[in-house]
Design a protein around this nucleic acid. Sequence first.
DNA 1: TATGAATGAGGGTTCATTCAT
DNA 2: TATGAATGAACCCTCATTCAT
Lengths: 207, 207, 207, 207
Amino acid sequence: MESETQGPEQRPPSFIQAARRQQLVDCAVEVIAELGAERASIVRIAQRAGVSRGVVTYHFRDRDDLFDRVVEEVYRIGEAEVGPPVRAAETPRDALLAFVGGSVDFYARHPAHMTALVEIFAADRHSPTRSRDGRAEHHHETADLAAILAEGQRGGQFRSFDIPLMILTLRAVLDAAVRHVTSGGDAGLLSAELRRTCDAATRKETS
Amino acid sequence: MESETQGPEQRPPSFIQAARRQQLVDCAVEVIAELGAERASIVRIAQRAGVSRGVVTYHFRDRDDLFDRVVEEVYRIGEAEVGPPVRAAETPRDALLAFVGGSVDFYARHPAHMTALVEIFAADRHSPTRSRDGRAEHHHETADLAAILAEGQRGGQFRSFDIPLMILTLRAVLDAAVRHVTSGGDAGLLSAELRRTCDAATRKETS
Amino acid sequence: MESETQGPEQRPPSFIQAARRQQLVDCAVEVIAELGAERASIVRIAQRAGVSRGVVTYHFRDRDDLFDRVVEEVYRIGEAEVGPPVRAAETPRDALLAFVGGSVDFYARHPAHMTALVEIFAADRHSPTRSRDGRAEHHHETADLAAILAEGQRGGQFRSFDIPLMILTLRAVLDAAVRHVTSGGDAGLLSAELRRTCDAATRKETS
Amino acid sequence: MESETQGPEQRPPSFIQAARRQQLVDCAVEVIAELGAERASIVRIAQRAGVSRGVVTYHFRDRDDLFDRVVEEVYRIGEAEVGPPVRAAETPRDALLAFVGGSVDFYARHPAHMTALVEIFAADRHSPTRSRDGRAEHHHETADLAAILAEGQRGGQFRSFDIPLMILTLRAVLDAAVRHVTSGGDAGLLSAELRRTCDAATRKETS
DNA sequence: TATGAATGAGGGTTCATTCAT
DNA sequence: TATGAATGAACCCTCATTCAT
């Protein structure tokens, strides 16, 4: 574990600590969603929170650390909102549709969160200091999706396709959906269309 | 009339000039693809070309101007490579599959070009000075795609779906495909899978 | 609300902060007086103060902001030194002479200050971003002078002349006086001569 | 004599040469008047003339050389227009008023020329490479004025005053007059007022 | 004669970060 | 806990100038 410059991180995190950190993470989410990850400077995030720039570097080791917490936060909320319906689904097909529809609903409810996540991932791609796609949470999600698809293929509900490429495709579509919802697109319509399209793209021909 | 700071201001672009400009555009493509549009500084592009910083600002009004030329170039090549097969297709379905497959092939042949384009568009989204999605070329492509889809729906080959949302979806998938191909994915496999998936996603149930 | 890039954004300007700002304003005055406003780069001002470049942009939003503070400072000192004697004068003629003489004395005591002011105004004239002669303080001074001249004309002490043009003339003479004093001219002699000349130029013939 | 980098200067200056040089000097006058001497870059002057930047550095050793030619040109025209009436005057007082009035008329007829001159002098003041007030033409004018004033004092038409300071004052007033005329002020009114004011400022009390 | 091409210095600004309080 | 203060790197842009045609 890396030694913090100063700041907190010695357990237990005091109450006021946690509140401040949460506030800063929330502000970071907003600013990243609005300006993109590269333009989301510490100054601007601090300004949004109405605090001095130093506060941010006090509570977080550095910019990357703060962004890591943002990623965690988004996955936490996302998992809380779309995880349960997906797990409640009785068939792989229902699970997939629950995932797609639930994701769009999640974007509609928290437009900034998913946008921020996508922005951070996009920035990661070009950062020399970031491993290419190294976020653990991302791998979890990928694995869950892979399990659903594999089971559907085994059960004969899904047609034959390359699973990693289908996951890539689904993620791409959902990432674009974020932008559409964020820029004012009708989430209900989009959710319905996307569920239909993903269904059509994966199901086995009834013939 | 745009005032070039120095640089060529008379009509006939000399031979050596055209060569330099082409070289710089090519270098810009590479650097943008590798580092992203925001990190693709003029200095780095100049270094890649092995020339002094000033050369770039001599041949192009400013960074935006250079990036505009990059966009033009990518569309020019893209249109030259995927346009003909699309127009040669006899049915909307064939046209769509030609577009999807041809795009992937194009990415495979010019991995950096399309990556650069996507990066520039992504950066545009956050630029205060850039109109949100104002690139003319982008609108052309969108219109072409819309025409194909509409005709396929009229002819009963495509199922009923919302055309703008389907275009959004297709673009999203193709943009993700760029990344996959660029990072070493098997373009042949991807092309085949994507054509199948897009076909499945759009065709009318035979049943 | 002007967003300071970083720098102090809270109200109470700390003691050390006020000191630094004052120091930087003073250095700016000197550098502008010596090199002219256009050549007075931030780097040079910082060097004069013996600090890093960033310190200046930390304490002032940008170059213009710093120069605005310089203008304020000069008017502040000027008003404090020449205002009282002018207001103490019992006749418009005495007020005018107090203004002229007091100004020259002021230049002698703070050679760099008024020089810097004149330089900044001169640069403003060519700046595309600066309103032509929009400095509020300048208008105050003009108005005060106009009041004195008008009263003198009403009272029959001053001859008939166009007031705005006379103000233009007086300002021109005083601005030239700055240069003379700054380059080592005898301020006492100049003050006396200028008072005599301005008196002669404005008084009504006794005949 | 300094060796020219390349370019002309080997007598005789061909006809086309002279024309080009004249054109460039005229354009320089305009650009300097509009933008100030420091912002009057070679590029902008060349643009105004509709030629390539290289042309300027071909015809003139460097920027300073071009500006020297501008100064010459303005003095040449000025002398041609205000010299004769001044020399035709029969009394020092008439000569002074002819100089003042003639100058203002000159400004009205060639607004850019005198403005450019003043700008160049202002820039000289801050240039490290320029001797402080070294223009020969300036000294000629100063000497002429001094002669007029001295003769008027000897003849008893002018009151007693310090001649160098009075010259300074007159120059200051006239330089301000340029700006007034250039920015649209009524030259006729200004000319009349200035002649009256300068007369009042210099004449001996009739008692 | 005229121009195209290239260079490098210098300017202003934004920013992440460190250090002392 | 929080902040103020300072630093220097990196960015884009403008410019005068040189050199080869």
